[in-house]
Design a protein around this nucleic acid. Structure first.
Length: 455
RNA sequence: GGUCCCUUCGUCUAUCGGUUAGGACACCAGAUUUUCAUUCUGGUAAGGCGAGUUCGAUUCUCGCAGGGAUCACCA
């Protein structure tokens, strides 16, 4: 059996820290098992779905470096859904209901008020042919529910009915479909809903593994019955836990600030975001991986925890910085060039240790090749240092040679010796190793800055 | 309110009845850098609470508490 997975976002928003997890996990699973990856846009909600969001999701995935083997959008498949719905009606598993949304809402509230579970009472199933004909004559349009298999024969009253599967992350799972409402599959306007379209597509695209968030666990119980009603074997399921915020509360409130677009704008590397998303809530160390293959090589669903994991953007920032600190010059040469940054490998290996995001190198490039206002703490000291500056050409040894001379002349050592020189040469009290930075700054700029000129 | 899931260092986690409770990040210290950062080495730090089972419980059972999810003509 060839592995086939899918990632099925609905284009009602952009991708964020929470919902890239199933995307990444599915992609990793595919790579690890040699399967195919279907990107499916679940755009059955016409009210909320937009082309702009669809484009945004594709752009976000592409930026992350994720690709797909197959692509589908549910709005293209309405004819197929109608066909399958007809089949289900003929099989007696889909029944017409005439309550309005308000009716249903009132029913639910009444049940809740009496501490009863808000389960649909199957009034539609009790309608006689005559009653149905009357409603139809009034021009009423029904919506259609899937009759769950959860009663004893001859009864409409649900009894505890367990649907079970061996979840690839959570182990043995049981969902009691006896305590669930028959799901609405077809809206009053005739369009299909997610619970239905998702199953039809999973069957038609021969999906073998459904990897998604634990918010779908109950859905899976219902959908297993749908698969069976349609004569298909359910796929294997794997439900990962959801993320919570750094403060321990649900993440959903602040997702706007945790969008993939936001991470991109903040200057994070795609591989840092990808590594973090793949590793959070797993038993592998959360560390940067330079390549998708490296993540895939160690990937296993069994390493994913069932407990909700905490998403902290500071942790992502740290992964990003570590990734950059190890990044070889070849991997960034093009991007540095695009930023107008030269200096070659020597500059990059010197500067990379002091950046959090790639854009930070601009700061050090200005120090090396541009103009920075020097900070002169002690004019006499820097003037003395300027007088001792060795002539060009410079090498890695120049810094030691020079600072030893300054030390001998002034008696300064340690921080008292280096701090004022760093401030004068870079305008900052922290930064890359001066030994390798000095030759990059060069004689002229160094001399100018020691004399208080921006250089 | 019903149902499901979760609870080990600050954080992500390992442990499938007997361990000095391990690792990673963060933090602290030392080394390197005669400075900061980087890098390297070392260290501090944990089983929510209460019962039960057992010779023995982080591990199994139950209760409580806390957290998450779900109960849409959303996905």
């Amino acid at each position: 059996m060839t592995v086939a997975v899918r990632f099925a976002p609905s284009p009602t928003g952009r991708l964020h820290a929470g919902n890239i997890r199933p995307a990444v996990l599915n992609a990793l699973f595919t790579r690890a098992h040699g399967g195919t990856f279907l990107l499916r846009l679940d755009d059955t909600d016409k009210e909320r779905s937009t082309q702009a969001f669809a484009d945004g999701i594709l752009a976000d995935l592409t930026w992350l470096g994720l690709s797909w083997d197959r692509f589908a959008r549910q709005s293209d498949r309405t004819a197929r859904y109608e066909e399958v719905a007809t089949q289900l009606k003929a099989a007696g598993r889909l029944y017409a209901c005439y309550e309005t949304a308000d009716d249903l809402d009132r029913k639910r509230k009444r049940q809740l008020a009496r501490s009863m579970p808000p389960i649909y009472d199957r009034a539609g199933l009790r309608l006689t042919a005559v009653e149905q004909a009357e409603l139809a004559a009034q021009g009423r349009k029904p919506h259609w529910r899937f009759r769950l298999e959860n009663t004893e024969s001859g009864s409409l009253v649900p009894v505890p009915t367990m649907v079970s599967w061996n979840d690839l992350i959570r182990g043995d799972q049981m969902v009691d479909v006896g305590s669930l409402s028959d799901p609405v599959l077809i809206r009053e306007d005739g369009t299909a809903l997610y619970t239905f379209t998702s199953v039809v597509d999973d069957i038609d695209f021969a999906i073998t593994h459904v990897i998604r968030g634990e918010d779908h666990v109950t859905n899976s119980g219902v959908q297993v019955q749908l698969f069976e009603a349609l004569g298909a074997a359910p796929p294997a399921f794997a439900h990962h836990s959801l993320l919570i915020g750094a403060d321990g509360q649900a993440l959903s409130k602040r997702l706007d600030s945790l969008s993939i677009g936001g991470f991109k704008d903040a200057g994070f590397e795609p591989m840092a975001v990808l590594s973090h998303a793949a590793l959070i809530g797993s038993s592998d160390a959360i560390e940067p991986h330079a390549a998708f293959e490296s993540l895939a090589a160690q990937f296993s669903l069994s390493k994913i925890s069932t407990a909700p994991a905490r998403f902290d953007v500071a942790e992502l920032a740290s992964v990003n910085a570590k990734l950059l600190h190890k990044l070889p010059y070849d991997a960034v040469a093009d991007r540095l060039a695009a930023m107008g940054i030269g200096g070659g490998e020597a500059f990059w290996t010197t500067a990379r240790a002091n950046i959090q995001v790639l854009g930070d190198v601009a700061t050090w490039w200005a120090v090396v090749a541009g103009s920075v206002p020097p900070l002169i703490e002690d004019e006499a000291f820097t003037r003395t240092a300027a007088g001792l500056l060795p002539p060009a050409p410079w090498s890695d040894a120049t810094w030691a040679e020079w600072t030893n001379a300054v030390k001998a002349a002034t008696g300064a050592k340690g921080r008292a010796l280096f701090h004022p020189l760093r401030l004068a040469l870079t305008g900052a009290d922290h930064g890359p190793d001066m030994k390798s930075l000095l030759p990059l700054i060069g004689y002229d700029r160094t001399m100018a800055r020691l004399n208080g000129q921006p250089g």
